[in-house]
Design a protein around this nucleic acid. Sequence first.
DNA 1: GTCTATAGATGGATAGAC
DNA 2: GTCTATCCATCTATAGAC
Lengths: 201, 201
Amino acid sequence: MRYPPGYKEKKHTELLKTSGSLMKKNGFAATGVDALMQSAGMTSGAFYSHFASKSDLLKALVTSELTASQNLWARNPHASAEDWLDFELERYLSIQHVQQPETGCLLPSLSAEIARTDLSIRELYEQELLKGHAILTQRLGHEELAWAFICQLVGSILIARALPHEELQRSVIHASKLFLRSALVAKNLSFAMPTQEPQKL
Amino acid sequence: MRYPPGYKEKKHTELLKTSGSLMKKNGFAATGVDALMQSAGMTSGAFYSHFASKSDLLKALVTSELTASQNLWARNPHASAEDWLDFELERYLSIQHVQQPETGCLLPSLSAEIARTDLSIRELYEQELLKGHAILTQRLGHEELAWAFICQLVGSILIARALPHEELQRSVIHASKLFLRSALVAKNLSFAMPTQEPQKL
DNA sequence: GTCTATAGATGGATAGAC
DNA sequence: GTCTATCCATCTATAGAC
């Protein structure tokens, strides 16, 4: 059976998308190759013509997922810092993000498992995270503030997801939203312009 | 072969300790019953005279590990809020905590996997987390601030652990330490007394 | 209570037909 | 490139000897 040119690339991209969703929802170790391929409408035998191993898929996911996230954070470059902040806080710290990990950020879902994997995957993780950090540093004006911002967001989604009741999930993300906003305003960072030079704290 | 009275309880406690360390280090799904029992000097057959299932062990770990954490946070009740805060930030956001998950807090290690488990485990998680939250609320004076505090700490350790280089790990935890401290001081909370009534933000 | 042995299912990965 | 079939290791859990 023949396959048209570009077929593999198309399927490869589709696989990254469906596998990313499934991995973020169910975890890396808990998701088998069978389930990954079934979610893409294929059988497990075909997996290895796309990836050398399951671990190799995780590596590819770190790049594709974090690149997609960077693109989200880089939107609206001309909005005021305050408008941008409000928009992004509402987006990331939303109840949808808590309850739908399959369409959300890779960081809260898979960071704990990535911390236990090969060095090569963690190096890729660092590389991509630094790109996201650079975007946030531009926006917030401080490198250290950008790190704290990332940790607060990721920690909030992580904790909220483990809670069984939506009411408390909402309390957690709401608290982090208020905290971040007021802390940033207190540091006079709400009015930092996106094009200004990053400063040390 | 006979076993002395209290032997099972003693072994049970030992099992919780060794299993907790191994689970926090390697993850729930990735750690088999064989490995868990081997770390306690036994074989897998004996596991089921202590726990009904692997999932049942996780439930027991949520209680034992989070109770132990609460005891840490509740220490030094008569220290000033500022001294207490400095001490706890140094303790939790330390490079040792990043690099030795087996002796650290359960939250950054296992929250993502707990979020994917049975309702009964998540309800226990909520129950225990609320106890820790109450302790922090007493210390920080605000319920919402206590939630944000927890999320920042847990997110920082989670992210730092996935990074391959100690230098960047240190940057991340240092940034969160500075951020939390300055945000709390800015809210005049450094001088809140531990016995005062919690306030809404 | 713990051991060995094993059942039964599922895991990652490979081989060969199409 | 994807399929079915399969190898082999590992997993959770159980059964029976001591």
